[in-house]
Design a protein around this nucleic acid. Sequence first.
DNA 1: TTGCTTTAGGAAAACGCTTTCGCAATCTAT
DNA 2: ATAGATTGCGAAAGCGTTTTCCTAAAGCAA
Lengths: 336, 336
Amino acid sequence: MSITIKEVAKEAGVSISTVSKVINKSPTISQETAKRVEDVMKKLHYYPNLRAKNFAQKSTKNIIFMTRLQKDVAFMNPHMFEIMCGAQKTLAAKGYNLSVLSIDSDAEPADEAEKIIAQKSADGLIIHGSATSKGLSLLLPGLNFPHIIIGKPDFESQLCWIDTNNCLSGEIATNHLCNCGYQNIAFLCGHEEDQISAHRLQGFRNVMREKELTPVCVRYTDSSKDASCVVMSEVLSGEKMPDAVICENNSIALGSLKAIHDFGLRIPEDIGVITFDNYPFSMIMDPPPTVVNIDVYDMGLQAASMLIRKIKNPSLQVQIYTTLPELIVRGSTVNI
Amino acid sequence: MSITIKEVAKEAGVSISTVSKVINKSPTISQETAKRVEDVMKKLHYYPNLRAKNFAQKSTKNIIFMTRLQKDVAFMNPHMFEIMCGAQKTLAAKGYNLSVLSIDSDAEPADEAEKIIAQKSADGLIIHGSATSKGLSLLLPGLNFPHIIIGKPDFESQLCWIDTNNCLSGEIATNHLCNCGYQNIAFLCGHEEDQISAHRLQGFRNVMREKELTPVCVRYTDSSKDASCVVMSEVLSGEKMPDAVICENNSIALGSLKAIHDFGLRIPEDIGVITFDNYPFSMIMDPPPTVVNIDVYDMGLQAASMLIRKIKNPSLQVQIYTTLPELIVRGSTVNI
DNA sequence: TTGCTTTAGGAAAACGCTTTCGCAATCTAT
DNA sequence: ATAGATTGCGAAAGCGTTTTCCTAAAGCAA
């Protein structure tokens, strides 16, 4: 058997309460006693049994990251893991553990959450947008269990959540183009119902109106390289030639780049291109595109620290944190 | 306070031992009693307190995935997360939890492992190659703690581990080219000291010798698009023109593709290209390359199930599992 | 000195389960 | 009918901590 608080107590000639108090740095123990006990702990390689500790303290120091995982998700959605890494970092620093729970595709997140809470297997929940549901949004507010929702802009609830401001991203992109001197700007959207796309477009329109500029056009396209290449070709053949284009996502940017090359136009001299989010493959695009990015790692950091604050101070009210988009200027835009 | 086994016992008119036995499906309880207790549990929304259970059972049903995380790791190394996802899936199915622990860059993995074990905060360890060390390899065998190492071919120890067979991958790639009819094959390696690169090259040499073919050349290059583009150009300008090239990684393939295009050669008709590992960005390469891939998700599945077997049957001896590479034929090779 | 306050440390209950052991009650074989 | 085996359930100890009280000793003011 491994060594327990009892052995430490005996070896140090004190009671187990005293050892426990030393472990937990209670102020009612004298310096000398504490020192003596600590020395014994070191000598015996004693570490408190976390299971017993959690049980006695009625806490787990465990945070569950609820999400939906499936094969290839890491390839398709690295952002989710960046968030997770950020969260893990903050949590570890605060003495918490992060564990990962995938909700099966046919399971209801609310049921899983209920079970976690009833089982007391975590002190808090970080819920990724992919694992949210109507049921969850109805359940959580009544439960008074620390949690935070990440990145589901259309998830209506009075919960703590953290998200990006895609409208602002659209504004930043547009402003950057204008500041570079581009004036005739086209906007290539993803699906019409997509909230993210809609918000980015909104930001674009805001700035254009403010600057009293008229968009060359706003076009919707499938988020595939081929489809967006076709759409971009049409735009370039249109009556009004743009000198810059905002692509709502990386796939669209990829298609657009191809169309522009096929037209024999130079980027960024003849036409500027800007898109959103920093995907790994954007580095191999030619030229690497200027993007408006959000720091998802930082989102994870923030989410975790909001959660910890909530755990330590349960009376804390609903909080919303919005990560600020950052402009990363690369080869697809330039001052003209 | 939330509801405990005691309330269930009282409500069902049985002792708490009986309830416990029902929870744990002990065969010494009659059908009727079990049914009655289960009904009460449902009615009261009772779930056993996992903290208490873990404490009493001296287990945690928790597996720690030890690795090194840092900003942008999800972008740079999606494979690690695919492994994690696979592991999570198996673990969840077996009633285990997966938690993620990142070893700080200046910390020694052995110390962390020792602490986990002493604290009894997990039943087993999945150790990613990035979080291994000499110290760990010395520590673990003596500890008799269930663990498994993933994907560090140069990590010498008598531990359970799981890995890929890169030599075999090299053989598969070479065989595929030969089967297509390519005969004059060049091989572009990464760094000379890199084990993975060396093994793939070894596989190439094995097959070439076996088929009594002579490599056009074997060249080392930096794993950057530009460097490998230069090297590939040199190869193409060499005295013996290859009709196929094996690129040891995706970056090298990218550079090679560019060089080949610049030379006005057609892929796959004039020259075949094959590389390794299925990165997301390989889909946007032109043409999408044929690759020899390893199913890392499956690696995670396997790792977890080996670990569970070891936990349930501690006398199990050292096991090594090697994932089989799979050929994914895409547009960069063809029968000629 | 006396009585009061402060301080340091110990005794024991508590946390909510599991598990061992024992004991009736029932069944089975003779 | 009786002894032995079997079955179904309960009593209680145990898991390794924390935490609440309590007490003895020390400090202090008068």
